[in-house]
Structures are given as C-alpha cells and as structure tokens.
Design a protein around this nucleic acid. Sequence first.
RNA 1: GGUCUCGUGGCCGAGUGGUUAGGCAGCGGUCUGCAAAACCGUGUACAGCGGUUCGAAUCCGCUCGAGACCUCCA
Length: 494
Amino acid sequence: MTSLYTDQKLFVYNTLSRSKEVFQPLNPPLIGMYVCGPTVYGDAHLGHARPAITFDLVYRYLVHLGYKVRYVRNITDVGHLENDSDEGEDKIAQKARLEQVEPMEIVQQYTVRYHRNMDQLNVLRPSIEPHASGHIIEQIEMIKKILESGFAYEVNGSVYFDVEKYNSNHHYGVLSGRKIEDLLSNTRVLAAQVEKRSGLDFALWKKAEASHIMRWPSPWSDGFPGWHMECSAMGCKYLGDQFDIHGGGMDLLFPHHESEIAQSTIVNGKAPVRYWMHNNMITINGQKMGKSLGNAMSLDDLFTGNHPLLEKAYSPMTIRFFILQAQYRSTLDFSNEALQAAEKGMKKLLVAAESLQQLKAVTDTQSLGINSIFTACYEAMNDDFNSPVVIANLFEAVRIINSAKDGLAAINQQDLDQLQQLFKVFVFDILGLIAEGSSSNHAIVDGLMQTIIQLRQDARARKDYATSDIIRDKLNNLSIVLKDGKEGTSWELK
RNA sequence: GGUCUCGUGGCCGAGUGGUUAGGCAGCGGUCUGCAAAACCGUGUACAGCGGUUCGAAUCCGCUCGAGACCUCCA
C-alpha cells in the first residue's frame, strides 16, 4: 500500500528562501517538526491559539498524508520571570514571589490551563512536550561546545555568543534577511549590555541576580540559560542535528530563530532546520493585540464572553474555524462582526455534516462531481496549507447536501460515499472541527423533542397556530430552534 | 531611524497578468399558515497617481495608510 504523500506534491513556504518549496523530508516517512510553545506565566490568549492551530493543521495534514511525524512543542518555563516592565501578566510572577509561591507552581498552573484551552480548541497534543527547565544540562553542554569552538565568551559568570565572529564565516541574518552592518548601526546600547562586546551578541547563559528566583548551577555561575538555547538544545535532542520543520510566530523570527540557527550551526556544523514556517500575527479591530494596548484577551475571555470588547461568548470551535478561515501567513483581524460571521458559517458547515448522515442515495442519477471538490481540497492543502480555500470548497459540498436534503438534487451512492469521506477527511481529520452541542447526543432529550414536535404538528394540522407558535417561541427562548423541512421538523441548539 | 510585510466590495478573507473564490450582512424570489432554515438570483471590489503590456487588482515606480521586527510578546 502506498501512502498518500507519494501522490500529493506538497508546497511549503520556507522563510529561509521566502518562497514556496516542494516539501521533501530528510528521511521519509519520518518527519521531525519543532514548534515554539508558550511561556507559561499567564493565561493563554488569542496569540497562542494561532500558532497552535496553524501547526495543528500542518501536523494533521502530514499525518493524513501518511507521514510519521514527531511533533515537539516546548514549554518555556525558564528565565522569563522577571525584568518585565510591562503592566500586564508579569505581576503574577511578582505576586508569586511576594506570596512565596514556588515558580514551578506558576509553571504548573499555567501549563495545565494551557492544555485545557488547547483541548477545547481540539488541538492535538504534540508527541513530545519538553520543558526548558528539564533540559538545563543539555543546554549547558551546548554552551560548552560553543565556548570551545571560540564563538562565545564569558564575562562575569555570563556567557555571550559572538555574533560578529560568527558572521565572519556564516551569515547571521540568513533567516530574517538582515545585514549585520544594518544591525550594528541600529543596535541600541542598553545599560544591561555593558558586558557584551557587541550589542548584537546574545546571552547563552546569564548569571542570576540575587533577586532572580529561577537559577541553576553551571560552570560559569548560578544562573539560567539564554532564551534561544532551549529550542536549540531540545530540538537537537529529540529531532537530531537537522530536522524538517521548525515553526513559530513571525515575531520570533528575529532574534530568536536567527540566533537558534547560529548556535546550532556552530555546535552541529550544519543548519538545524530545512523548512522554517512562521504564522502571522493577530490584530483586534485592526490594532495589534498587546497588553499595553489593553485589548489582549485570553481564550477563557473569548469562551465566556467576559471582556469589554466582546459582545458575546464565542465557542472554541468558532475561534478555531475563524483562524482556519485565514491563511496562516496573513494577519488576522478579530472583531465581533467577523467572529459572528465565522460562527454562522461554521454552524452551516457542521449542520450540513449532520444532514449528510440522513441523506439517502438515489440510484441511476448523474454524478454531481464530488471528486473535483476532493481534488480542489487537496490542491489547496498542498499549496502551503491554504485552509480558507479548503473551506470555500467545502461550502460547495454544503450546497449540494442541502439541495439533496430539500429534494432539489438527486444524489447517487458513489457521490454520497464520497461526500461522507470528504467531510471525514477534511472537516474532521484535517481542519479538526468537532460538532459542538450536537442535537443527537442524548437519546432522552431527542425523544422528548420528538414528542414536542409531534404536538406542534398536531396543532398545526388543526390550524391552531397560536399553540404551535407558542411551542416554537418557548423553545426558542431555551435556545432550541425548530426547522421545518420537506422531511418533517428537526431541531438544534442555537 | 533601519529592515520587512501588507492595503481586495458593508464586514472577514482567498486569488493573481485576460476566466465565479468562499463565508457573513443586504436586496429580490421559491418554500412556509407566518417565520426560521434551505435553495435560486443579485454587488460600480481590488488605497491613490504614474509606468510596462494587446490587456493589470495581479509586474515596476512614487505617494498615502496600516502593521511586524530591531526592545526575551505567539
């Protein structure tokens, strides 16, 4: 049996080349994928949902194609718990310190909450979810190697990467498209940087100040690893010197990923990653989402509607669908209007998925060409995971399903089978949507509803519209919508 | 200031040198006891100004506007 990936030519936009490239894994069918995960010192917000869902889509599609994917997504729980002068979440860390809570309590608390949110969004768990704090030794070993090779230097217990030396025989800027001369002329000189030989140099190991609560012993000082180290160390440990895909938000492109490349290249003698993928940012009402702008909203805010900017609650699947309705490399603007449009669209799609289960095939009818929808969906996914085009094509299938349901189109068995396969593969397996509040979940409730619907039908039959409308209105107040169709009346939750 | 990205109809968002994106909203129709849902039909869209071209929303230049990174935020 051949795998799908032998037939599907997948194009991936590689930040390294700024172009779409044919995806060719190093060791098919194995694929190594690393994605930068959250720093767990606050509730997951909208910004966390985008990369999680983007790379969930990538992961799901690669698996669907038959690849065996090792998906690593880290938990950053080291070194970020102080020195944050912003107004927002860092106060939690401060508070933790004041209340003498262990930093790992904060880490644990927000890791659990992150997982819960990701489960709600139906984001699959990665294969490995390593903690930076659990890989201090690996990071120290890596730093040692960089020091030995002469591309780092120690000052007062801290170790810095020598960017200019690296750039003398490598290209620091290969990923972000920056030139070191430009960087040098634009680097600000901050007080904390006096130890560095150059403002471009970045910390591999930082000596901890007395106030710093997270610290580990090292050959150089009690301290903590530099921000970029963890991904280099853990990526290398679990995926090897060189692996296929590294993902993350565009904001991590520089300096994080650029520096990651530099470090790993020195240690391993080759570029660590073949395909760099970056998802774009999210804006809210056209503005960047940020703590300082006061428009940051957590996922729980969205799910409960408990935020001044929100007119109502939006379900996890609405958020997921909304994010998938934009290509991952575009900025995505959140607004109540846009979310409500997404909510309705998604509902239409999922209701059609349910209707599909009730459809009966008619023999001896012309094919409606479901095959072409299938093909179009694969083409869209192969074109750098273009989920909005997949969705657009699925709505073509929705129209066919609804027409068949209304008796306006006859559907043959092959089309029916293909439609069911289409929805299974693209709606549920790849886009990862799930039916929320499905009406067929509870046999007792459905039985009750059938009784009520029958009573209303009886009233309508004797033209007692006052009674039938009362039934409909009362149910509507309970968020139960009755839908009169050719085949009788069905119901669903609003 | 430097580097880079983007500007599509009421809203969100694909696409890209000549062909329908799609969703939501609106309008008209079918269906309905009336609605809702569904189906059918319906839009002077491609920031502005120049240029290249037989032809540009799509390529080039400029202007205006928005955003990202350069400041351990996804």
